[in-house]
Design a protein around this nucleic acid. Structure first.
Lengths: 254, 254
DNA sequence: CGTGTTTATCGTCAGGAAGACGACTATGAT
DNA sequence: ATCATAGTCGTCTTCCTGACGATAAACACG
Protein backbone atom coordinates (compact mmCIF):
# COMPACT_ATOMS: atom_id res chain seq x y z
CA UNK A 1 0.00 0.00 0.00
CA UNK A 2 1.45 3.33 -0.92
CA UNK A 3 0.46 5.82 1.70
CA UNK A 4 1.17 8.85 -0.47
CA UNK A 5 -0.21 8.27 -3.91
CA UNK A 6 -0.74 11.76 -5.26
CA UNK A 7 -2.99 10.62 -8.03
CA UNK A 8 -5.73 9.04 -5.96
CA UNK A 9 -6.86 10.80 -2.85
CA UNK A 10 -10.26 12.12 -1.88
CA UNK A 11 -10.40 15.92 -1.85
CA UNK A 12 -11.33 17.72 1.34
CA UNK A 13 -12.20 21.25 2.21
CA UNK A 14 -10.14 22.48 5.15
CA UNK A 15 -11.36 25.28 7.37
CA UNK A 16 -10.36 26.86 10.63
CA UNK A 17 -12.92 27.54 13.31
CA UNK A 18 -12.22 29.82 16.22
CA UNK A 19 -13.14 29.53 19.86
CA UNK A 20 -12.45 33.07 21.03
CA UNK A 21 -12.89 33.45 24.76
CA UNK A 22 -12.88 36.49 26.97
CA UNK A 23 -14.13 37.45 30.40
CA UNK A 24 -16.84 40.08 30.53
CA UNK A 25 -18.71 41.09 33.62
CA UNK A 26 -17.57 38.06 35.62
CA UNK A 27 -18.63 35.60 32.93
CA UNK A 28 -16.67 33.57 30.42
CA UNK A 29 -17.88 34.59 26.96
CA UNK A 30 -17.28 33.31 23.46
CA UNK A 31 -17.44 35.09 20.15
CA UNK A 32 -20.23 33.87 17.89
CA UNK A 33 -21.49 35.01 14.51
CA UNK A 34 -24.94 34.67 13.05
CA UNK A 35 -25.15 32.58 9.93
CA UNK A 36 -26.69 34.35 6.97
CA UNK A 37 -27.17 31.38 4.71
CA UNK A 38 -28.20 27.75 4.87
CA UNK A 39 -27.55 25.39 6.39
CA UNK A 40 -28.28 26.55 9.90
CA UNK A 41 -29.36 29.95 8.57
CA UNK A 42 -29.99 32.42 11.37
CA UNK A 43 -28.25 30.23 13.95
CA UNK A 44 -25.17 31.25 15.83
CA UNK A 45 -21.86 29.66 14.92
CA UNK A 46 -18.20 29.99 15.69
CA UNK A 47 -16.26 32.33 13.41
CA UNK A 48 -14.14 30.59 10.82
CA UNK A 49 -13.40 30.17 7.17
CA UNK A 50 -11.47 28.32 4.53
CA UNK A 51 -7.76 27.88 4.70
CA UNK A 52 -6.23 29.48 1.64
CA UNK A 53 -4.23 27.50 -0.84
CA UNK A 54 -0.84 28.71 0.33
CA UNK A 55 -1.55 29.48 3.95
CA UNK A 56 -0.45 27.73 7.10
CA UNK A 57 -3.13 26.64 9.54
CA UNK A 58 -2.00 28.98 12.27
CA UNK A 59 -1.82 31.84 9.81
CA UNK A 60 -5.35 31.16 8.66
CA UNK A 61 -6.58 31.20 12.24
CA UNK A 62 -4.73 34.45 12.97
CA UNK A 63 -6.18 36.01 9.85
CA UNK A 64 -9.72 35.03 10.75
CA UNK A 65 -9.20 36.31 14.28
CA UNK A 66 -7.97 39.66 13.01
CA UNK A 67 -10.82 39.93 10.54
CA UNK A 68 -13.38 39.18 13.19
CA UNK A 69 -12.03 41.07 16.18
CA UNK A 70 -9.10 43.22 15.13
CA UNK A 71 -6.91 41.33 17.58
CA UNK A 72 -3.38 40.50 16.59
CA UNK A 73 -1.78 37.37 17.86
CA UNK A 74 0.71 37.33 20.69
CA UNK A 75 3.41 34.96 19.61
CA UNK A 76 4.18 32.86 22.69
CA UNK A 77 7.86 32.74 21.82
CA UNK A 78 8.03 36.47 21.24
CA UNK A 79 9.22 38.33 24.33
CA UNK A 80 8.28 41.77 23.04
CA UNK A 81 4.81 42.62 24.23
CA UNK A 82 2.76 43.74 21.28
CA UNK A 83 1.64 47.32 21.75
CA UNK A 84 -1.96 46.95 20.70
CA UNK A 85 -4.52 44.44 21.75
CA UNK A 86 -2.94 41.01 21.58
CA UNK A 87 -4.41 37.60 22.07
CA UNK A 88 -3.18 34.12 22.71
CA UNK A 89 -3.84 31.67 19.90
CA UNK A 90 -3.24 27.93 19.85
CA UNK A 91 -4.50 24.96 17.94
CA UNK A 92 -7.29 23.15 19.70
CA UNK A 93 -8.31 20.04 17.78
CA UNK A 94 -9.49 18.92 14.38
CA UNK A 95 -13.02 17.82 13.60
CA UNK A 96 -13.66 15.71 10.56
CA UNK A 97 -16.83 13.71 10.94
CA UNK A 98 -17.98 12.96 7.37
CA UNK A 99 -21.45 14.27 8.19
CA UNK A 100 -20.49 17.38 10.13
CA UNK A 101 -21.30 19.61 7.16
CA UNK A 102 -24.29 18.44 5.12
CA UNK A 103 -22.95 19.94 1.89
CA UNK A 104 -19.53 18.41 1.57
CA UNK A 105 -16.60 16.88 3.33
CA UNK A 106 -15.12 19.57 5.52
CA UNK A 107 -12.30 19.07 7.98
CA UNK A 108 -12.08 21.90 10.44
CA UNK A 109 -8.97 22.70 12.42
CA UNK A 110 -10.33 24.46 15.49
CA UNK A 111 -8.19 27.02 17.26
CA UNK A 112 -8.52 28.52 20.70
CA UNK A 113 -7.96 32.23 21.28
CA UNK A 114 -7.92 33.99 24.62
CA UNK A 115 -8.38 37.73 24.62
CA UNK A 116 -8.82 40.51 27.16
CA UNK A 117 -12.17 42.20 27.34
CA UNK A 118 -12.35 44.44 24.31
CA UNK A 119 -13.48 48.04 24.71
CA UNK A 120 -14.75 48.21 21.14
CA UNK A 121 -17.27 45.39 20.73
CA UNK A 122 -16.31 44.53 17.14
CA UNK A 123 -14.37 46.59 14.65
CA UNK A 124 -14.91 44.52 11.52
CA UNK A 125 -18.02 42.88 10.16
CA UNK A 126 -21.55 44.17 10.23
CA UNK A 127 -23.18 44.81 13.56
CA UNK A 128 -25.67 42.56 15.35
CA UNK A 129 -24.41 39.53 13.45
CA UNK A 130 -21.52 39.00 15.80
CA UNK A 131 -21.52 39.10 19.58
CA UNK A 132 -20.01 37.91 22.80
CA UNK A 133 -22.22 35.33 24.43
CA UNK A 134 -21.71 33.69 27.82
CA UNK A 135 -20.56 30.14 27.24
CA UNK A 136 -22.92 28.92 29.92
CA UNK A 137 -25.77 30.20 27.80
CA UNK A 138 -24.35 28.79 24.56
CA UNK A 139 -23.80 25.37 26.10
CA UNK A 140 -26.93 25.20 28.23
CA UNK A 141 -28.51 21.78 27.75
CA UNK A 142 -31.45 22.93 25.66
CA UNK A 143 -34.41 24.00 27.73
CA UNK A 144 -32.94 26.97 29.54
CA UNK A 145 -34.60 29.17 32.11
CA UNK A 146 -37.39 31.38 30.86
CA UNK A 147 -38.17 31.24 27.17
CA UNK A 148 -34.94 32.92 26.18
CA UNK A 149 -33.13 29.62 25.75
CA UNK A 150 -31.05 30.07 22.62
CA UNK A 151 -30.96 27.66 19.72
CA UNK A 152 -27.90 25.44 19.88
CA UNK A 153 -24.88 26.38 17.83
CA UNK A 154 -24.66 25.37 14.18
CA UNK A 155 -22.82 22.27 12.97
CA UNK A 156 -20.78 20.59 15.71
CA UNK A 157 -19.76 23.94 17.11
CA UNK A 158 -21.23 23.25 20.53
CA UNK A 159 -18.82 20.39 20.92
CA UNK A 160 -15.92 22.46 19.62
CA UNK A 161 -16.79 25.25 22.03
CA UNK A 162 -17.06 22.80 24.91
CA UNK A 163 -13.65 21.38 24.06
CA UNK A 164 -12.19 24.86 23.89
CA UNK A 165 -13.66 25.87 27.22
CA UNK A 166 -12.37 22.72 28.81
CA UNK A 167 -8.93 23.35 27.36
CA UNK A 168 -8.91 26.87 28.74
CA UNK A 169 -10.12 25.69 32.13
CA UNK A 170 -7.39 23.14 32.48
CA UNK A 171 -4.66 25.21 30.90
CA UNK A 172 -4.88 28.13 33.30
CA UNK A 173 -4.14 25.61 36.02
CA UNK A 174 -0.60 24.91 35.02
CA UNK A 175 0.29 27.81 32.75
CA UNK A 176 0.27 31.56 33.02
CA UNK A 177 -2.38 31.78 30.33
CA UNK A 178 -4.92 33.45 32.56
CA UNK A 179 -2.98 36.66 31.99
CA UNK A 180 -4.08 36.49 28.35
CA UNK A 181 -7.55 37.46 29.59
CA UNK A 182 -6.15 40.56 31.28
CA UNK A 183 -5.04 43.90 29.90
CA UNK A 184 -1.27 44.48 29.79
CA UNK A 185 -1.33 45.76 33.35
CA UNK A 186 -3.65 44.29 35.89
CA UNK A 187 -4.13 43.72 39.58
CA UNK A 188 -4.14 40.50 41.52
CA UNK A 189 -7.85 40.93 42.05
CA UNK A 190 -8.52 41.20 38.35
CA UNK A 191 -6.52 38.06 37.74
CA UNK A 192 -8.45 36.31 40.47
CA UNK A 193 -11.73 37.29 38.88
CA UNK A 194 -10.49 35.72 35.66
CA UNK A 195 -9.91 32.42 37.42
CA UNK A 196 -13.26 32.67 39.14
CA UNK A 197 -15.07 33.35 35.87
CA UNK A 198 -13.34 30.62 33.90
CA UNK A 199 -13.66 28.01 36.60
CA UNK A 200 -17.00 29.19 37.90
CA UNK A 201 -15.87 29.07 41.51
CA UNK A 202 -15.08 31.51 44.30
CA UNK A 203 -11.48 31.73 45.42
CA UNK A 204 -10.12 33.00 48.68
CA UNK A 205 -8.55 36.40 47.92
CA UNK A 206 -5.85 35.98 50.56
CA UNK A 207 -4.66 32.55 49.53
CA UNK A 208 -4.86 33.53 45.88
CA UNK A 209 -2.73 36.58 46.50
CA UNK A 210 -0.14 34.56 48.35
CA UNK A 211 -0.07 31.94 45.63
CA UNK A 212 0.32 34.10 42.55
CA UNK A 213 2.79 36.53 44.09
CA UNK A 214 4.79 33.59 45.38
CA UNK A 215 5.00 31.73 42.09
CA UNK A 216 8.29 32.76 40.47
CA UNK A 217 7.97 34.33 37.03
CA UNK A 218 4.20 34.56 37.04
CA UNK A 219 3.83 38.24 37.85
CA UNK A 220 6.25 41.15 37.80
CA UNK A 221 5.38 44.47 39.44
CA UNK A 222 4.64 47.13 36.84
CA UNK A 223 5.86 50.46 38.13
CA UNK A 224 4.33 49.63 41.47
CA UNK A 225 1.56 52.10 40.86
CA UNK A 226 -2.04 51.46 41.77
CA UNK A 227 -5.51 51.77 40.35
CA UNK A 228 -8.97 51.66 41.68
CA UNK A 229 -11.74 49.29 41.07
CA UNK A 230 -13.48 49.75 44.37
CA UNK A 231 -11.69 49.75 47.66
CA UNK A 232 -8.06 50.08 48.53
CA UNK A 233 -5.66 50.72 45.64
CA UNK A 234 -3.93 47.63 44.35
CA UNK A 235 -0.51 47.02 42.93
CA UNK A 236 -0.28 46.74 39.19
CA UNK A 237 1.42 43.75 37.66
CA UNK A 238 2.47 42.60 34.25
CA UNK A 239 2.70 39.01 33.04
CA UNK A 240 6.09 37.53 33.87
CA UNK A 241 8.19 35.47 31.57
CA UNK A 242 7.14 32.12 32.96
CA UNK A 243 4.71 30.17 30.82
CA UNK A 244 4.54 27.01 32.91
CA UNK A 245 3.48 27.44 36.52
CA UNK A 246 5.26 25.44 39.13
CA UNK A 247 3.59 24.66 41.39
CA UNK A 248 0.32 24.87 39.46
CA UNK A 249 -2.79 26.69 40.52
CA UNK A 250 -5.23 24.29 42.10
CA UNK A 251 -8.77 24.24 40.84
CA UNK A 252 -11.14 23.56 43.73
CA UNK A 253 -12.91 20.31 43.07
CA UNK A 254 -16.54 19.36 43.39
CA UNK B 1 -17.76 37.26 3.43
CA UNK B 2 -19.30 33.85 3.15
CA UNK B 3 -17.28 31.44 5.21
CA UNK B 4 -18.75 28.34 3.58
CA UNK B 5 -18.92 28.85 -0.13
CA UNK B 6 -19.03 25.30 -1.47
CA UNK B 7 -18.13 26.34 -4.98
CA UNK B 8 -14.77 27.93 -4.31
CA UNK B 9 -12.41 26.26 -1.91
CA UNK B 10 -8.92 24.96 -2.44
CA UNK B 11 -8.74 21.15 -2.34
CA UNK B 12 -6.55 19.49 0.27
CA UNK B 13 -5.36 15.97 0.84
CA UNK B 14 -6.01 14.88 4.42
CA UNK B 15 -3.96 12.16 6.03
CA UNK B 16 -3.51 10.72 9.48
CA UNK B 17 -0.05 10.11 10.88
CA UNK B 18 0.53 7.96 13.91
CA UNK B 19 2.89 8.38 16.82
CA UNK B 20 2.75 4.89 18.31
CA UNK B 21 4.70 4.65 21.53
CA UNK B 22 5.62 1.69 23.65
CA UNK B 23 8.18 0.85 26.30
CA UNK B 24 10.71 -1.82 25.39
CA UNK B 25 13.70 -2.72 27.47
CA UNK B 26 13.50 0.39 29.63
CA UNK B 27 13.32 2.71 26.63
CA UNK B 28 10.50 4.68 25.08
CA UNK B 29 10.15 3.51 21.48
CA UNK B 30 8.15 4.68 18.51
CA UNK B 31 6.93 2.77 15.50
CA UNK B 32 8.51 3.87 12.23
CA UNK B 33 8.24 2.59 8.68
CA UNK B 34 10.76 2.82 5.90
CA UNK B 35 9.64 4.82 2.88
CA UNK B 36 9.80 2.90 -0.37
CA UNK B 37 9.31 5.81 -2.74
CA UNK B 38 10.29 9.41 -3.17
CA UNK B 39 10.31 11.82 -1.61
CA UNK B 40 12.45 10.77 1.33
CA UNK B 41 12.88 7.32 -0.20
CA UNK B 42 14.65 4.97 2.19
CA UNK B 43 14.15 7.27 5.15
CA UNK B 44 12.12 6.37 8.19
CA UNK B 45 8.73 7.96 8.69
CA UNK B 46 5.73 7.69 10.95
CA UNK B 47 3.04 5.30 9.77
CA UNK B 48 0.01 6.95 8.23
CA UNK B 49 -2.17 7.25 5.21
CA UNK B 50 -5.02 9.00 3.53
CA UNK B 51 -8.32 9.48 5.23
CA UNK B 52 -10.96 7.79 3.15
CA UNK B 53 -13.83 9.68 1.64
CA UNK B 54 -16.41 8.54 4.16
CA UNK B 55 -14.28 7.93 7.20
CA UNK B 56 -13.98 9.84 10.43
CA UNK B 57 -10.53 11.00 11.49
CA UNK B 58 -10.41 8.77 14.54
CA UNK B 59 -11.58 5.80 12.50
CA UNK B 60 -8.86 6.40 9.96
CA UNK B 61 -6.25 6.49 12.70
CA UNK B 62 -7.61 3.31 14.27
CA UNK B 63 -7.59 1.60 10.89
CA UNK B 64 -4.00 2.57 10.22
CA UNK B 65 -3.00 1.44 13.68
CA UNK B 66 -4.64 -1.93 13.18
CA UNK B 67 -3.08 -2.36 9.74
CA UNK B 68 0.35 -1.54 11.08
CA UNK B 69 0.36 -3.28 14.44
CA UNK B 70 -2.73 -5.43 14.80
CA UNK B 71 -3.71 -3.43 17.84
CA UNK B 72 -7.32 -2.56 18.38
CA UNK B 73 -8.26 0.61 20.09
CA UNK B 74 -9.36 0.83 23.68
CA UNK B 75 -12.27 3.20 23.74
CA UNK B 76 -11.68 5.42 26.77
CA UNK B 77 -15.37 5.59 27.54
CA UNK B 78 -15.81 1.87 27.23
CA UNK B 79 -15.63 0.17 30.62
CA UNK B 80 -15.30 -3.36 29.23
CA UNK B 81 -11.64 -4.18 28.91
CA UNK B 82 -11.00 -5.48 25.43
CA UNK B 83 -9.74 -9.05 25.59
CA UNK B 84 -6.93 -8.79 23.07
CA UNK B 85 -4.16 -6.30 22.79
CA UNK B 86 -5.68 -2.87 23.14
CA UNK B 87 -4.12 0.53 22.82
CA UNK B 88 -4.96 4.05 23.77
CA UNK B 89 -5.56 6.38 20.83
CA UNK B 90 -6.12 10.11 20.88
CA UNK B 91 -5.80 12.97 18.50
CA UNK B 92 -2.53 14.83 18.84
CA UNK B 93 -2.42 17.85 16.55
CA UNK B 94 -2.78 18.82 12.93
CA UNK B 95 0.08 19.85 10.69
CA UNK B 96 -0.63 21.83 7.58
CA UNK B 97 2.40 23.83 6.52
CA UNK B 98 1.96 24.42 2.77
CA UNK B 99 5.46 23.09 2.13
CA UNK B 100 5.42 20.09 4.40
CA UNK B 101 4.93 17.73 1.47
CA UNK B 102 6.77 18.80 -1.67
CA UNK B 103 4.24 17.20 -3.99
CA UNK B 104 0.97 18.73 -2.93
CA UNK B 105 -0.97 20.36 -0.16
CA UNK B 106 -1.37 17.78 2.57
CA UNK B 107 -2.91 18.38 5.95
CA UNK B 108 -2.05 15.65 8.39
CA UNK B 109 -4.05 14.97 11.52
CA UNK B 110 -1.54 13.31 13.81
CA UNK B 111 -2.71 10.85 16.42
CA UNK B 112 -0.96 9.48 19.47
CA UNK B 113 -1.22 5.80 20.36
CA UNK B 114 0.14 4.19 23.51
CA UNK B 115 0.56 0.45 23.47
CA UNK B 116 2.01 -2.24 25.72
CA UNK B 117 5.13 -3.98 24.54
CA UNK B 118 4.03 -6.35 21.80
CA UNK B 119 5.23 -9.94 21.85
CA UNK B 120 4.93 -10.26 18.08
CA UNK B 121 6.98 -7.47 16.52
CA UNK B 122 4.61 -6.73 13.66
CA UNK B 123 1.82 -8.85 12.24
CA UNK B 124 1.01 -6.86 9.10
CA UNK B 125 3.26 -5.34 6.51
CA UNK B 126 6.51 -6.70 5.17
CA UNK B 127 9.39 -7.24 7.54
CA UNK B 128 12.40 -4.97 8.01
CA UNK B 129 10.48 -2.02 6.68
CA UNK B 130 8.81 -1.35 10.01
CA UNK B 131 10.40 -1.33 13.43
CA UNK B 132 10.36 0.01 16.95
CA UNK B 133 13.04 2.62 17.40
CA UNK B 134 14.00 4.39 20.62
CA UNK B 135 12.70 7.93 20.43
CA UNK B 136 15.96 9.22 21.83
CA UNK B 137 17.66 7.82 18.76
CA UNK B 138 15.03 9.14 16.36
CA UNK B 139 15.16 12.60 17.83
CA UNK B 140 18.90 12.81 18.46
CA UNK B 141 20.11 16.18 17.22
CA UNK B 142 21.90 14.89 14.14
CA UNK B 143 25.46 13.85 14.87
CA UNK B 144 24.87 10.99 17.23
CA UNK B 145 27.42 8.81 18.92
CA UNK B 146 29.48 6.59 16.70
CA UNK B 147 28.68 6.59 13.03
CA UNK B 148 25.31 4.92 13.51
CA UNK B 149 23.49 8.22 13.75
CA UNK B 150 20.28 7.69 11.81
CA UNK B 151 18.98 10.01 9.14
CA UNK B 152 16.27 12.28 10.48
CA UNK B 153 12.67 11.30 9.92
CA UNK B 154 10.94 12.19 6.67
CA UNK B 155 8.75 15.25 6.23
CA UNK B 156 8.06 17.08 9.48
CA UNK B 157 7.73 13.79 11.31
CA UNK B 158 10.50 14.58 13.78
CA UNK B 159 8.43 17.47 15.04
CA UNK B 160 5.27 15.40 15.15
CA UNK B 161 7.08 12.70 17.08
CA UNK B 162 8.53 15.25 19.48
CA UNK B 163 5.08 16.68 20.07
CA UNK B 164 3.67 13.21 20.67
CA UNK B 165 6.42 12.31 23.11
CA UNK B 166 5.92 15.54 24.99
CA UNK B 167 2.18 14.91 25.11
CA UNK B 168 2.77 11.44 26.53
CA UNK B 169 5.27 12.74 29.06
CA UNK B 170 2.94 15.35 30.39
CA UNK B 171 -0.20 13.27 30.19
CA UNK B 172 1.02 10.44 32.41
CA UNK B 173 1.49 13.08 35.08
CA UNK B 174 -2.15 13.80 35.63
CA UNK B 175 -3.90 10.82 34.07
CA UNK B 176 -3.77 7.09 34.45
CA UNK B 177 -2.51 6.72 30.91
CA UNK B 178 0.75 5.10 31.94
CA UNK B 179 -1.27 1.90 32.37
CA UNK B 180 -1.78 1.91 28.61
CA UNK B 181 1.87 0.92 28.32
CA UNK B 182 1.31 -2.07 30.58
CA UNK B 183 -0.29 -5.46 29.96
CA UNK B 184 -3.75 -5.94 31.46
CA UNK B 185 -2.23 -7.08 34.73
CA UNK B 186 0.95 -5.56 36.01
CA UNK B 187 2.94 -4.89 39.13
CA UNK B 188 3.75 -1.58 40.74
CA UNK B 189 7.36 -2.07 39.69
CA UNK B 190 6.40 -2.50 36.06
CA UNK B 191 4.34 0.66 36.20
CA UNK B 192 7.24 2.47 37.80
CA UNK B 193 9.57 1.37 35.03
CA UNK B 194 7.10 2.84 32.54
CA UNK B 195 7.30 6.21 34.22
CA UNK B 196 11.06 5.96 34.40
CA UNK B 197 11.34 5.12 30.71
CA UNK B 198 8.94 7.81 29.53
CA UNK B 199 10.36 10.51 31.73
CA UNK B 200 13.93 9.33 31.56
CA UNK B 201 14.44 9.59 35.29
CA UNK B 202 14.88 7.28 38.25
CA UNK B 203 12.07 7.18 40.79
CA UNK B 204 12.20 6.06 44.39
CA UNK B 205 10.44 2.69 44.51
CA UNK B 206 9.10 3.24 48.03
CA UNK B 207 7.60 6.65 47.42
CA UNK B 208 6.25 5.52 44.06
CA UNK B 209 4.57 2.54 45.64
CA UNK B 210 3.01 4.68 48.32
CA UNK B 211 1.83 7.19 45.77
CA UNK B 212 0.17 4.92 43.24
CA UNK B 213 -1.44 2.63 45.78
CA UNK B 214 -2.70 5.64 47.65
CA UNK B 215 -4.28 7.38 44.68
CA UNK B 216 -7.93 6.35 44.61
CA UNK B 217 -9.10 4.64 41.44
CA UNK B 218 -5.67 4.35 39.88
CA UNK B 219 -5.00 0.69 40.64
CA UNK B 220 -7.23 -2.14 41.73
CA UNK B 221 -5.75 -5.41 43.03
CA UNK B 222 -6.16 -8.19 40.48
CA UNK B 223 -6.74 -11.43 42.34
CA UNK B 224 -3.95 -10.48 44.66
CA UNK B 225 -1.70 -13.08 43.10
CA UNK B 226 1.91 -12.51 42.34
CA UNK B 227 4.45 -12.92 39.59
CA UNK B 228 8.15 -12.84 39.31
CA UNK B 229 10.43 -10.53 37.54
CA UNK B 230 13.35 -10.91 39.87
CA UNK B 231 13.09 -10.69 43.59
CA UNK B 232 10.19 -10.94 45.94
CA UNK B 233 6.80 -11.63 44.34
CA UNK B 234 4.73 -8.57 43.74
CA UNK B 235 1.03 -7.94 43.85
CA UNK B 236 -0.75 -7.82 40.52
CA UNK B 237 -2.92 -4.85 39.71
CA UNK B 238 -5.30 -3.82 37.01
CA UNK B 239 -6.01 -0.30 35.85
CA UNK B 240 -8.73 1.29 37.96
CA UNK B 241 -11.60 3.32 36.65
CA UNK B 242 -10.04 6.69 37.32
CA UNK B 243 -8.73 8.49 34.28
CA UNK B 244 -7.70 11.71 35.98
CA UNK B 245 -5.23 11.39 38.81
CA UNK B 246 -5.75 13.53 41.85
CA UNK B 247 -3.25 14.35 43.17
CA UNK B 248 -1.13 14.02 40.06
CA UNK B 249 2.16 12.20 39.77
CA UNK B 250 5.02 14.62 40.06
CA UNK B 251 7.71 14.54 37.45
CA UNK B 252 11.08 15.28 39.06
CA UNK B 253 12.41 18.46 37.56
CA UNK B 254 15.86 19.32 36.27
C1' DC C 1 22.15 -24.93 53.97
C1' DG C 2 23.77 -20.22 54.64
C1' DT C 3 24.82 -15.99 52.19
C1' DG C 4 24.30 -12.50 49.01
C1' DT C 5 21.37 -10.23 45.57
C1' DT C 6 17.23 -8.52 43.87
C1' DT C 7 12.78 -6.68 44.23
C1' DA C 8 8.70 -5.55 46.98
C1' DT C 9 6.55 -3.33 50.82
C1' DC C 10 5.98 -0.81 55.24
C1' DG C 11 7.36 3.08 58.37
C1' DT C 12 9.34 7.33 60.00
C1' DC C 13 10.60 12.04 59.76
C1' DA C 14 11.35 16.82 58.17
C1' DG C 15 10.02 20.51 54.91
C1' DG C 16 6.78 22.70 52.05
C1' DA C 17 2.25 23.91 50.09
C1' DA C 18 -2.54 24.83 50.64
C1' DG C 19 -7.09 25.72 52.94
C1' DA C 20 -9.32 28.27 56.64
C1' DC C 21 -9.53 32.45 58.58
C1' DG C 22 -8.13 36.66 61.64
C1' DA C 23 -6.30 41.26 61.32
C1' DC C 24 -5.04 45.48 59.34
C1' DT C 25 -4.90 49.07 55.56
C1' DA C 26 -6.44 52.36 52.16
C1' DT C 27 -9.76 54.14 49.34
C1' DG C 28 -14.74 55.97 48.10
C1' DA C 29 -19.71 56.54 49.41
C1' DT C 30 -23.22 58.12 52.72
C1' DA D 1 -17.47 60.04 61.09
C1' DT D 2 -18.97 55.76 59.64
C1' DC D 3 -19.55 52.08 56.54
C1' DA D 4 -18.65 49.26 52.60
C1' DT D 5 -15.25 47.51 49.55
C1' DA D 6 -10.83 45.60 48.23
C1' DG D 7 -6.17 44.63 48.97
C1' DT D 8 -2.35 42.71 51.77
C1' DC D 9 0.02 40.34 55.54
C1' DG D 10 0.11 36.51 59.05
C1' DT D 11 -1.01 32.31 61.56
C1' DC D 12 -2.33 27.59 62.14
C1' DT D 13 -3.41 23.04 60.85
C1' DT D 14 -3.32 19.46 57.60
C1' DC D 15 -1.69 16.96 53.85
C1' DC D 16 1.82 15.60 50.46
C1' DT D 17 6.28 14.71 49.20
C1' DG D 18 11.15 13.47 49.20
C1' DA D 19 14.79 11.12 51.69
C1' DC D 20 15.79 7.04 53.60
C1' DG D 21 15.87 3.02 57.21
C1' DA D 22 14.01 -1.58 57.82
C1' DT D 23 11.80 -5.87 56.77
C1' DA D 24 10.07 -9.58 53.61
C1' DA D 25 10.17 -13.00 50.05
C1' DA D 26 11.97 -14.98 46.22
C1' DC D 27 16.39 -16.81 43.57
C1' DA D 28 21.46 -17.86 42.61
C1' DC D 29 25.28 -19.19 44.22
C1' DG D 30 28.95 -21.54 46.99
Amino acid sequence: MSPYDPSAYPPFAVTVDLVVLTVRRHALCALVVRRGEPPFQGRWALPGGFVRADEDLGAAAARELAEETGLCVHDPGDPTPAPGAGAHLEQLATYGDPKRDPRMRVVSVAHLALAPDLPAPRPGGDANSVRWAPVEELLSPEAGFGDESPAPLAFDHARILADGVERARSKIEYSSLATAFCPPEFTVGELRRVYEAVWGVALDPRNFHRKVTGTPGFLVPAGGTTTRQGGRPAQLFRAGGATLLNPPMLRPEV
